[in-house]
Design a protein around this nucleic acid. Structure first.
Length: 360
DNA sequence: AATGCGGGGCA
DNA sequence: TGCCCAGCATT
């Protein structure tokens, strides 16, 4: 979509009235949220990272614990990565946590521990993309920058009746151009947050509450009765299924074997119980596979669980087995035996938290 | 431009 | 079950 087409979209759109209606609604109806208690750019930043692809209700307890544990940017910069991951445990998309700490260290080292107000500097930080950059600049620093997330695309696709596919990367730029045209120069913070709050509370994906909407009279889709048909979004692919055995292995002193995952890829740097893909072995040869990989002879006592875990792009089906060590010494460097009471100090993905009940 | 990356809640 | 969620990095 070209620039002139965006101009055409907002031609004869009453933006002054739209801004006033949206902002007064937001000032009145906004939820009280922990990250709205002050304008500390560090806290705004943490909240925006946590909120990526994650619901507000999920984030609230994590945000509270995280800020209690790392109250300032310098506290986070100085922390051990394992402690940061532990604070993120269960929230998902763990590269967010590692990127955030990388970026915070950069701010401490290069920007005197002050979150940059310069868009280019801010946007170059690890994990800070177009949305997060705009959110921090507008909410913490009152700059009239667009902050286009899924809510904003849904709301504006209806208000301006835009039928571009919001699943496509480049579509975001169209909405950014629209926001630049209609954003309130006086209160960009309330304007951007108002669009998102409207998307979360009123202009919902299914059955939007148009009769309660403060900007209904500005909404082209409502006028045409097509609000249910927007936004347009192409379908995502189905997840692939992968099957594993997992081993809850206890040694003679009652400690359990865990290992750290690789530093890149799925669940990077998190800890887990050893796993064997079905592609590499079967139930009959599992003990042999284990000895070959870990250097330990084990006795498998039996299957104790079957865990199905759904990711955004794949599905794990994990057959959990209990085993005891007979002899041998550990071959891999990233694995170790840990007393059961210390398991809680390691960050586990949720799939393996479900197995913890078999280890104590 | 397409894919990898988590986990929870809801119709 | 499928969809959606205050997206970003990598290829």
């Amino acid at each position: 979509m070209k620039n002139e087409q965006v101009s055409k979209l907002i031609y004869n759109f009453n933006k002054d009235s739209f801004q006033a209606d949206l902002i007064s609604w937001f000032n009145k109806e906004q939820r009280q949220l922990p990250w709205r208690e002050d304008k500390d750019p560090y806290k705004i930043w943490v909240s925006e990272i946590m909120l990526q692809q994650t619901k507000v209700d999920t984030v609230i307890p994590y945000f509270a614990r995280f800020i209690e544990r790392f109250p300032t940017l310098n506290d986070l910069a100085a922390a051990e990565e394992q402690d940061v991951l532990k604070a993120w445990e269960g929230l998902g998309y763990y590269s967010r946590a590692r990127n955030l700490q990388t970026a915070v260290k950069e701010v401490a080292a290069s920007y005197d521990s002050k979150v940059p107000e310069d868009p280019k500097a801010l946007g170059s930080l690890k994990g800070v993309g177009p949305y997060t950059k705009g959110a921090i600049l507008s909410i913490a620093y009152d700059q009239p920058e667009p902050a286009v997330d899924g809510n904003v695309m849904r709301v504006l696709s209806r208000v301006l009746m835009i039928d571009e596919d919001i699943a496509k990367q480049k579509t975001r730029r169209i909405f950014e151009e629209c926001v630049q045209e209609i954003i309130s120069p006086n209160n960009p913070s309330a304007f951007n947050q108002g669009l998102m709050e409207l998307g979360a509370l009123i202009c919902t994906p299914s059955s939007p509450s148009c009769l309660l909407c403060p900007v209904r009279q500005h909404c082209k889709a409502y006028a045409e009765g097509v609000q249910q048909d927007l936004p347009i979004k192409s379908k995502s692919k189905k997840q692939k299924k992968v099957e594993y055995f997992a081993f809850i292995v206890k040694d003679q002193t009652g400690r359990y074997l865990i290992e750290q995952r690789p530093e890149k890829g799925l669940l990077a740097n998190l800890w887990q119980f050893p796993m064997a893909p079905f592609a590499e072995t079967d139930e009959e040869h599992a003990a042999g596979w284990f000895e070959q990989v870990y250097g330990l002879k084990i006795t498998i006592n039996g299957k104790v669980d079957d865990i199905k875990h759904v990711f955004s792009h794949l599905i794990w089906d994990v057959t959990v087995m209990e085993a005891t060590v007979e002899e041998g010494s550990l071959r891999t460097s990233q694995s170790k035996f840990v007393p059961s009471q210390e398991l809680k100090d390691y960050p586990f993905p949720v799939s393996h938290q479900k197995m913890l009940k078999h280890a104590r």
